[in-house]
Design a protein around this nucleic acid. Structure first.
Lengths: 251, 251
DNA sequence: ACACACTGAACAAACGTTCAGCCAAAATTA
DNA sequence: TAATTTTGGCTGAACGTTTGTTCAGTGTGT
C-alpha cells in the first residue's frame, strides 16, 4: 500500500519550495504580532521559520516584498472565509448572519491576526501598495454586505438606505475588532455578535428579532468568551462559543 | 507699547524648552504619518523639528519614551476635544450630537492623525505601555458615551441596552475613521455623521428624528467633503462641512 | 561666573542584502 | 536499473549602511 499524499509532507521539490514560502509568511505574521511592525526583522523571521537568514531574499526579492505578500495572504484568507460563509445559506438574512459569524470566528478574529491587520493599516498611508491590496478586497466585501442589506430591505419592505446600513455594519465590526485588540480581557465574542445583531434588529426587525435570538439578546452575563482573546498556542482555536454555533434553532 | 505675550514666541528659558519639546512631538507625529511606524527614525524627527540629532535623547531619555509621550499627547488632545464638546450643551441628546461632531471634526479626524493612531494601535499588542495609555482614555470615553446613552434612553423611555448601544456607536466611529484612512477619496464627513445618526435615530427615534436632520438624512449626494480627506499643508483644517456646523436650527 | 539647553561628531550594534559554495533531488545517459 | 551530470533550493559568512545613543564642547540667558 503506497503512502497517502499528505499535504503536510511535501514530496516534490516545487511542493517543498511552496511550503517554505508559506512558512516564511506564517513566521512574518507571528513576528509582527509578537514584536510589532517596527521591530520586525528578517533575522527574527528566518529564525522563527527555522531557515537560514539569506533565504527570505531568495523567495522574496526584498523585505518589503515579503510584507506585501503577507498582506496579500491575509486579505485572501479573509476573503475566502466570508465568501464561503455566505455561499451556504440561501436567504439573504441567513447570509448576513453567516457573514457576522465568520467575521467573529476565531480563525479570523483572534488577537494575533488583528494586531497584524492594524499594523498594516497603520503603515498603509505611507505605503500605497498596502492601500491597493486592501482597497480591492474591501471593495468586494463592502459590495457584498450592501447587496445583502439591500435584498433584506427589499424583502421586508423596509425604508432603509442599504448603503448607509451596510457601511454602519462594516464599521461596527471593524471597531469591535479594535476592541479585541485593545481591551482583550473584557472582549467577549457573543457581546460583539450581539452588538451587531441589535443594530440589524433595529434596521430589519422582522428578520432579526425572534425567539431564535433570545439567547443572545436576553442573556446578560455569562463568562464564556474571554478566553478567546488570546490566540491559542500553535494555531488558532477552532472551537466557538455555543452562543454562536448553528443557525439558532435551539428554541 | 510692550510686545504682547504670544504663545508662539517663548521668552524664558523654561518656556523655550517646553516649546522645543512640543516641536519634537509634533515632528514625531508628522514623520509617523509620512513614513510609517517602521521607518520612523530619530534622524528624521530631529531634521523635521530643525534641531540637532542628540536633542531627542536630551528631552526624552530614549526613542521609546518619545513615542510614549507622543501617544500620551495624542490621547490628551482627543480627550480634551470630546470633553469640551459635551460640556457646552445641557441636554444629553445635544451632548451626544456634539460628541459625534467633535469625533469627526477636522482637528481630530484627519488622515494624518488617524494614520498615527492606527500605527500605535498596531504596535499596542507588543508594547503594553501603549495599551495602558490608551486603556485609561478609552475607558473614560466609553463611560461618557454609555452615560449619555443611558440618560437619553431614560428620558425617552426607550427599551434600549445602553451599554450595547454605546458600544455600537463607539465601534461605528472607530470603523469610520478606518474608512477615512483606507479610502480617503470616497470618505465624506457628512456621510460618516449620517451613518451614526441613522443608528441613533433607530435607537432613539424621538430624539434623533426630526426636521433638523433632514439635510443630513434626506440629502443624497453633494460632493463637499472629499477634500478633507488629506490634512492641509501646515496644520489641520479648521473649516468644517456646512452640514456639520451648528446644532441644526437651519430649517 | 554660572547654569543649562543645545550641538554634532563618534561609536557599537543591528539592519537588509549579496553571493560563493553545498548538497539532495531531478534529468540525462549508459 | 545503475551511474553520471545538471539543476536549484538553501546555507551562512561577509559587506556597507543606518540605527539609537553617548558625550565633550558651545554659547546664550540668568
Amino acid at each position: 500500500m503506497p503512502a497517502p499524499k499528505k499535504s503536510a509532507a511535501p514530496v516534490t521539490r516545487i511542493e517543498k519550495k511552496e511550503a517554505t514560502r508559506q512558512q516564511l509568511i506564517a513566521a512574518t505574521v507571528e513576528v509582527i504580532a509578537a514584536d510589532g511592525f517596527a521591530d520586525m526583522t528578517l533575522a527574527k523571521v528566518s529564525q522563527r521559520a527555522q531557515v537560514s537568514r539569506g533565504l527570505v531574499n531568495f523567495h522574496f526579492t526584498s523585505k518589503e516584498q515579503l510584507l506585501v505578500e503577507t498582506l496579500r495572504q491575509l486579505t485572501e484568507e479573509y476573503r475566502s472565509t466570508w465568501s464561503k460563509a455566505i455561499a451556504k445559506p440561501s436567504r439573504a438574512r441567513d447570509k448576513l448572519l453567516a457573514l457576522l459569524r465568520a467575521d467573529f470566528s476565531p480563525k479570523v478574529c483572534n488577537r494575533k491576526k488583528i494586531a497584524v491587520w492594524y499594523a498594516f493599516w497603520g503603515e498603509a498611508k505611507s505605503r500605497p501598495t498596502y492601500l491597493d491590496v486592501c482597497a480591492k478586497a474591501d471593495g468586494a466585501f463592502a459590495d457584498a454586505v450592501e447587496d445583502l442589506c439591500r435584498e433584506v430591505a427589499k424583502e421586508g419592505g423596509y425604508a432603509v438606505d442599504a448603503s448607509l446600513a451596510a457601511r454602519g455594519l462594516r464599521c461596527m465590526t471593524d471597531g469591535l475588532w479594535l476592541e479585541l485588540l485593545m481591551a482583550p480581557q473584557q472582549f467577549r465574542r457573543d457581546v460583539a455578535m450581539r452588538t451587531c445583531l441589535q443594530y440589524l434588529a433595529q434596521l430589519f426587525p422582522k428578520h432579526f428579532l425572534g425567539s431564535e435570538f433570545d439567547h443572545l439578546t436576553a442573556q446578560s452575563l455569562e463568562q464564556d468568551g474571554a478566553d478567546f482573546a488570546e490566540a491559542a498556542p500553535g494555531e488558532d482555536r477552532r472551537t466557538e462559543s455555543v452562543a454562536l454555533q448553528g443557525s439558532g434553532t435551539s428554541a
